[in-house]
């Protein structure tokens, strides 16, 4: 069992390494992508500069809080898209029968299908650390931040897996899945305190931004055990749910009696 996991990690590592090598074949384009993404994200801070020129506290969020919010949002986006791009293109892989290629390999289908590298996401990741640096970095904060990004990134990937897995039952859902992952990204860049209770419930359920951005933010600013437990509990549920839903869908894919356009 342990060797199986070790081998899986080895393959994941090799696969990601080769994908990054492919993206870096054109070094100039790669660096341009990264730099422009940083600029792209930074320009959005202008919005907050204008907002905060009107009022210096938006229901509990100061401009520093916004920087950290964006740091976590951008960082988790970076982690998820930089290494697990496949998860965001999963629904089309399902409807186009591309999972077949993974099914003939003696390795875990889910892991194989979610791997993929997006160069610009490294820009998002770098930007996250820039923001952390601006808002005041300490070794403690750096370590906690990094751990939160990794966990948040994984939860983001799992939410994408769940949305995209709807394709197993509903056919072509790429616009829907893209919209849903878009909502996760978008909500994560605005203060959660401006929304009402109903929306907050949404953040802990169907659009799990709470576990990706908001609870980690609270932990980063003001560590407390309750938030940590909520984060770990919620994240675990989402990760397990993603696996259950994907494999249930995969069973359906293989026993399928519905003629989906597959060659």
């Amino acid at each position: 069992m342990l060797t199986e996991v070790k081998n899986l990690i080895k393959i994941t590592f090799l696969s990601t390494k080769y994908a990054i090598m492919r993206e870096m074949e054109n070094k100039v384009a790669f660096i341009m992508n990264v730099l422009f993404m940083i600029l792209n994200n930074a320009s959005f801070i202008l919005v907050w500069v204008v907002m905060y020129s009107i009022k210096d506290n938006i229901n509990g969020y100061t401009i520093n809080t916004i920087l950290l919010l964006w740091g976590i949002a951008s960082g988790t986006y970076g982690v998820s898209r930089a290494f697990f791009r496949g998860a965001y293109e999963l629904s089309n892989k399902i409807t186009d029968g591309k999972l077949d290629a993974f099914l003939v390999m003696p390795k875990n289908v889910l892991i194989q299908s979610i791997l993929g590298v997006t160069p610009s996401a490294f820009g998002d990741l770098l930007y996250a650390y820039i923001l952390l640096f601006i808002s005041g970095i300490t070794p403690y904060k750096f370590i906690v931040f990094t751990l939160l990004l990794i966990l948040g990134g994984i939860v983001d990937v799992c939410s994408a897996i769940i949305y995209n897995s709807l394709a197993f039952w509903l056919g072509r859902v790429d616009s829907l899945a893209d919209s849903l992952t878009g909502f996760v990204t978008m909500f994560g860049t605005y203060p959660d305190t401006i929304f009402n209770r109903f929306v907050h419930i949404l953040f802990y359920t169907f659009i799990p931004v709470a576990f990706i951005v908001f609870v980690p933010l609270r932990i980063l600013i003001n560590f407390n055990i309750t938030d940590l437990l909520i984060l770990l509990g919620g994240s675990s549920i989402i990760i397990i749910l993603a696996c259950i839903i994907f494999y249930a869908g995969l069973r359906r894919y293989s026993s399928s009696n519905l003629m989906v356009a597959r060659i």
């Binding site: 009022k55 829907l176 893209d178 878009g182 605005y190 401006i194």
Partner: peptide
């Protein structure tokens, strides 16, 4: 049409977000 309608959900989302945001800015 179908994918466009789904895509338009983001428009509703943006408006909803700014509705809430400006609500706090306008005391």
């Amino acid at each position: 049409v179908k994918s466009f309608i789904v895509g338009s959900l983001s428009l509703i989302l943006i408006i909803y977000i700014y509705l809430n945001l400006w609500n706090f800015l306008y005391s």
